[in-house]
């Protein structure tokens, strides 16, 4: 097994199975493999684990119901009953990011959410989706979202561009927050792991640090999935209720 000396090497995309579609490169990569594993694991938890829905749930069913009620409560408390149609999306989003973060913590695995293009794609889907929901629900009145109430007309000249900017910057903050957390954590783990590979018997110390960092990263993995999901809920709430 190759030892990673460079801490950023772990983010390298490798084409496992070259695929071309209409002349476009859509190769099955190590990232795609990780995504397949994520979907398979979530399906195993929520579909295989509940195939015999018991009145008194077993471990896997409990976990599935726990995730369901966690996301349902999150959506209910931020958006309310109108958020219900978006529950499958928010649930899929939360579980996808959570499993991507957690699977990435397994040594030699690939961290999907450590790729800026992936987190940005997820964030832009949320952004565009939320904007469409806002316009469908309120029509052109949704534009009033950018006009704060009870503010003198003169100030609006300054405030409206700020509101528009802060709205449009959302996909960037949302995606970079998740990406940067994953990047920083895994780079730290990679640095100490690479260090351990260099110093022979003394490797016990950087490995011990890695073990402690792994505990911290476990927290970050869950927390960032939660942050991404709840911010998506809050954006959805803005679009549905407009403040």
């Amino acid at each position: 097994m190759a030892i990673e000396l460079h801490p950023l090497e772990q983010f390298t995309i490798e084409r496992v199975l070259p695929v071309r579609l209409h002349g476009l490169d859509v190769s099955y990569t190590n990232a795609a493999l990780a995504m397949t594993a994520i979907v398979a694991l979530i399906a195993a938890l929520t579909i295989f684990g509940t195939r015999r829905a018991a009145l008194v749930p077993g471990r896997v069913q409990s976990l599935a119901e726990l995730s369901y009620e966690f996301v349902a409560d999150m959506l209910q408390s931020t958006v309310g009953p109108q958020g219900l149609p978006f529950f499958p999306f928010i649930f899929s989003l939360f579980m996808f990011i959570l499993f991507a973060n957690l699977l990435g913590l397994i040594p030699y695995s690939f961290t999907v959410t450590g790729q800026i293009i992936v987190t940005f794609a997820l964030a832009i889907v949320v952004f565009i989706g939320v904007t469409i929901v806002g316009f469908v629900k309120h029509g052109l009145h949704f534009l009033r979202f950018f006009v704060p109430e009870g503010v003198p007309a003169l100030l609006l000249v300054i405030l409206v561009p700020i509101e528009v900017l802060s709205y449009c910057i959302r996909p960037f903050t949302l995606s970079i927050r998740l990406f940067a957390n994953m990047l920083a954590g895994h780079t730290m783990l990679g640095i100490f792991a690479g260090f351990a590979a260099l110093i022979g018997a003394l490797a016990i110390f950087p490995v011990a640090i890695d073990v402690m960092l792994l505990a911290l990263e476990l927290l970050v993995a869950v927390l960032q999935a939660y942050v991404f999901a709840i911010l998506s809920c809050l954006y959805l709430n803005d679009a549905i209720h407009m403040h």
Partner: peptide, 13 residues
């Protein structure tokens, strides 16, 4: 690497 990643992200999601 963006296109293959986006493609498989879309498929898996």
């Amino acid at each position: 690497t963006y296109l293959p990643q986006l493609f498989w992200l879309a498929v898996s999601f």
